[in-house]
Design a binder for these strands. Structure first.
Lengths: 267, 267
DNA sequence: GCAATTTGTCTCTTACAAAAGACACATGTA
DNA sequence: TACATGTGTCTTTTGTAAGAGACAAATTGC
């Protein structure tokens, strides 16, 4: 149970396409791709399209979908011949929540925070080496940037990303961050060394602010939630207008840090 | 899309043991068993125990668990070498909720109902041929019978079961109800014909009440939620003390029917 | 201290699942 | 009327994943 080593978070399902040849794939992998595909499309999909989407043979896809539907992981969507996630997945998901204090309390705290501040608030975690918005609660502003729950964003684009990587070795970080990830939405390219420096700073100060990284109009404030001394399990973050005053920003950060700390493991 | 036929809901994952010989199983099936096993145990499980639990070869189990953990469907539980559901399943589950108006509104309505009445309230659905508590909200009574979400109970034991089967042919009902299901917790055996008669009554009156069926102290009131005229998609139910007065019961049923109707598809 | 059990990783074999592709039947559209 | 496009179900073939078993290392128990 050596736990310090860098092999902790390896994701080998390869995003998608790099399966160049139509090589034979394990059924389970096909299923994982199917689930992931449905997650990204966020809507019921025809089986034909699904086959294309995960680029699997039609026949195979039909078989797998039938099995998954029988098992309740997928359901035929009401209208016709489309499939989407099924009740079973919901039930398993609730089991996860039930077994996970942090998530349960975190969701609560995020909802509170966004209600109290009026800003969009999010709970973020590392999910197989990627930054994931686990729960978010929209603010009351007319224009809110809504990042869907479950969205995966490159780590370097976010304040939370910098905090989440606080505990990792350089090698592990290099593993998790691809070249593409360093290319910001506005076209600038972040240098890996700068990113790693940011991480160190974030670790030291105990919070992180990024301005105009994912889009030009927002600032992102983040604070770490610890599951053990030094181990960042999650972050809470607030998304505020980029022109929010220094003073106000400071206030919010203080609030955020307090809440995040209250979620952390006692010690 | 013939939908009247009885083959609709067949669950062939066979509970567990009847796999007499060590016949070779598809990986996907093993995975489905693993998920189901974790769902029933409701706690993190060691991989060895898991292999025993789903009675699969250890080597296979290790392989599958590793793949599932890499994919994020499972997670190694904090303490050591146990696994439980992972964040991915939570995310997929939330996708399901998002894509499912009924569930989303139903959860809300159930929460309201239990808050207003002080009684335990539940949203129930048919899940691959079995009765499932999809969401429940505990009442304020000192002794509350808490049936965990996701619990699967034999259809004949419940008021909701009678409503959920309202649209089905006799043959389909026979398919879904086993001999064991007809044996009530108190040892009495329900006759299938009586059960089917109950279903007809429930369909006609638009609600259903059962007294002391799952336990001797409670009454269960249920009302149907329709997804189309005649098609019962779900039920809402209230669990109240068995000695609740006729008058009070009538009141609650009226309330319940109203709420359930409000969830039903417009028509 | 030495057994007995459990854990995690490896190798090798063959039973069998994934894939290819043919088929029947709908659609829509030039 | 022909012609493309999509859907759902077959059968056949073959590449490989599931499984048996052996192993070292870590945990137990007595």
């Amino acid at each position: 149970m050596q736990d310090g080593n860098a092999l902790a978070a390896r994701l080998d399902i390869g995003p998608d396409e790099d399966r160049t040849s139509g090589s034979r794939e394990k059924g389970l992998n096909r299923v994982l791709h199917i689930l992931e595909f449905l997650h990204t499309t966020q809507r019921a999909v025809g089986i034909g399209d699904l086959a294309k989407g995960v680029n699997a043979p039609r026949s195979t896809t039909y078989t797998l979908v039938r099995e998954l539907v029988d098992a309740g992981l997928l359901e035929m969507a009401g209208d016709g011949n489309r499939v989407y996630f099924g009740k079973k997945l919901y039930l398993y998901g609730m089991d996860y929540v039930r077994g996970n204090d942090l998530l349960r309390r975190g969701r609560q705290e995020v909802d509170n925070l966004s209600r109290e501040t009026g800003e969009t608030s999010e709970l973020c975690m590392l999910q197989s080496g990627r930054y994931t918005i686990v729960h978010s609660s929209p603010g009351t502003r007319p224009f809110r940037i809504s990042s869907a729950t479950g969205l995966q964003i490159p780590l370097p684009w976010t304040a939370s990303g910098r905090l989440l990587l606080a505990g990792f070795e350089r090698a592990a970080i290099e593993d998790m961050v691809s070249e593409d990830d360093l290319l910001l939405p506005d076209g600038r390219r972040l240098r890996l060394d700068d990113f790693i420096a940011d991480i160190a700073t974030a670790k030291a100060t105990g919070h992180c602010v990024t301005s105009g990284l994912v889009d030009a109009y927002t600032k992102c404030l983040a604070a770490p939630v610890f599951s053990a001394p030094g181990k960042v399990e999650a972050t809470m973050c607030l998304v505020v207008p980029i022109d929010t005053s220094e003073a106000k920003t400071g206030e919010l950060i203080a609030l955020l840090r307090g809440r995040a700390a209250s979620l952390s493991i006692p010690g």
